[in-house]
């Protein structure tokens, strides 16, 4: 089935809960209402004509400058039976974004959603294990948001970029010892 047919099947089943679509050849997707995503996903997986049994990728994107400012979660789906692909999107507000979890539909969504929570702060309601996956557990903030600022320190370690060795050397600081300075008496002299 091509993208238009998949979209038509979804619209036929869910009507207005498919709130938008873009079906050009590069990357077709349908925008789904946030509260309907679990049903739509289950239908996509189970329906024999669609059979989208594989979640290829779950991405979160932050659009603070669009109108309206939003975050999107994009689900790229693939069918091993019919070898077709499709994408679903949900659009979320930037303050406390929340969307139902899909880990019951595709098992791999568990880890992808944990990553989206970790890096973007999107809460997946009903998730069995909503905790950070890549960053430490006591990390504050969600770094891939567009308004992220590097803090100075994390537990005493520098987070903001520190001046690199070249800059510090040019500023007059002695970086390390010279390469051949171990013995005060017999200094190696590099042959030119």
């Amino acid at each position: 089935m091509d993208a238009a047919a998949i979209h038509a099947a979804l619209v036929q089943r869910f009507g207005e809960r498919i709130t938008g679509a873009s079906l050009d050849a590069g990357s077709p997707f349908a925008i789904v209402a946030t509260d309907a995503i679990a049903e739509v996903a289950a239908f996509c997986k189970v329906d024999p004509a669609l059979a989208l049994d594989n979640l290829m990728c779950l991405s979160a994107v932050d659009y603070p400058k669009e109108t309206p400012p939003r975050m999107e979660v994009v689900y790229h789906l693939f069918s091993y039976r019919h070898l077709h692909t499709f994408a679903l999107k949900v659009q979320l507000p930037r303050e406390s974004p929340a969307v139902p979890t899909l880990e019951g539909v595709w098992g791999v969504a568990n880890w992808h959603e944990r990553e989206a929570w970790d890096l973007f702060g999107i809460l997946f309601t009903g998730h069995s294990d909503m905790r950070r996956i890549l960053l430490p557990d006591d990390w504050e903030g969600h770094p891939l948001r567009k308004d992220w600022q590097d803090p100075e320190y994390y537990n005493g370690l520098h987070v903001k970029p520190t001046p690199q060795m070249m800059e510090r050397a040019l500023a007059g600081e002695t970086i390390g010892v010279g390469p051949f300075d171990f013995t005060p008496e017999n200094k190696h002299v590099e042959e030119p």
Partner: peptide
């Protein structure tokens, strides 16, 4: 997954890495 807004920097690049999903099982 590449999102471009017409600039010289990508707007968003999300990598689906095969080892990430392999580890999830």
């Amino acid at each position: 997954y590449l999102v471009s807004d017409g600039n010289i920097n990508p707007y968003r690049v999300k990598v689906k890495s095969p080892c990430f999903t392999a580890m999830s099982v």
